[in-house]
């Protein structure tokens, strides 16, 4: 059985202005520096086998990004090609080992990633687990919008949630199409006004939203657009991704099996929140 590791990481601050592809390259470089034995694809142009989840739009922050890393070494493979076992465990001699060092990976990888990208948790993935792209069904977001006071925003949110459908004209790939975004809005609440921003003149509110990613994703910008043309989205942070199966909603790291196989890095989460 080959090993796949699932990482949860944050993307906060200035680095949020980089794209999904940029983050992929940051990870490739960090993993090479870490010495982790990442598996490579075969063929004319081999690439490291990394699978990223649902892309985070450029400019958004997140404390809930996920990445699956497929490792080249099989679990339990002896360190030495001749199979000889030495007194000290082979795990201790290697830069990384499946059994011993997974817990230490967040602390080892974060310094190799740009400031603002912090590894929060890691777990080993069982066999036959769906890829993140297939499995994730919805994402939770914390949003901040400028434009109207909290009471007015709450009324608009109520109207949207009460509506049977909410049509939005969207442009994608140069084509305009009307779409009903209502089914994609799983939850939407006004958390309150934000009044601690110095020099702020326009009303600023914080919202929580849970938006479906399947069958087709709803973008936070589209949601805000539907709530009113007088609103400006000034901050968006993905706070959670969800996998819902048979009515049960869980975190993608819950797919990593036994709880003790997941290792959270509390200091990093503290920083991220």
């Amino acid at each position: 059985m080959t090993t796949t590791l699932r990482f949860r990481y944050a993307k906060l601050g200035k680095v949020r202005f980089t794209s999904h592809r940029d983050v992929a390259r940051m990870w490739e470089r960090a993993l090479r520096r870490s010495g982790l034995p990442v598996a490579w694809s075969k063929g004319f142009s081999p690439r490291p086998l990394l699978s990223f989840g649902y892309a985070l739009p450029t400019g958004c922050e997140s404390v809930a990004e996920y990445l699956d890393v497929h490792l080249a070494e099989e679990e339990g493979t002896p360190d030495r090609p001749d199979g000889e076992q030495s007194e000290t465990s082979a795990d201790e001699q290697r830069p990384w080992s499946p059994a011993g060092c997974v817990a230490a990976l967040p602390g080892r990888l974060s310094p190799l990633l740009p400031q603002g990208v912090d590894v929060l948790a890691v777990g080993k993935l069982g066999d036959g687990v769906d890829s993140l792209q297939q499995a994730v069904t919805s994402c939770s977001w914390e949003l901040e919008v400028l434009g109207v006071p909290a009471e007015e925003l709450a009324t608009r949110v109520e109207d949207l949630l009460d509506a049977r459908s909410a049509v939005l004209r969207r442009e994608r790939n140069g084509l305009q199409a009307d779409g009903d975004l209502r089914p994609s809005v799983r939850a939407l609440t006004v958390l309150g006004a934000v009044d601690d921003v110095p020099g702020q003149k326009v009303a600023r509110c914080r919202l929580h939203a849970e938006l479906a990613t399947q069958p087709r994703g709803l973008r936070v910008a589209e949601l805000v657009q539907r709530l009113g043309a007088d609103l400006t989205l000034v901050r968006a942070c993905r706070t959670q991704q969800w996998i819902e199966r048979d009515g049960i909603r869980c975190d993608p790291l819950a797919m990593t099996g036994r709880a003790e196989d997941s290792f959270h890095a509390p200091h990093a989460e503290g920083r991220a929140s």
């Binding site: 200035k14 202005f17 980089t18 940029d22 740009p114 989205l233 000034v234």
Partner: peptide
């Protein structure tokens, strides 16, 4: 605040 409205904002953040 300007960076949400420009192409390739990562050009302007350093890091």
């Amino acid at each position: 605040p300007l960076l949400d409205g420009v192409s390739t904002p990562g050009r302007y953040v350093g890091g």
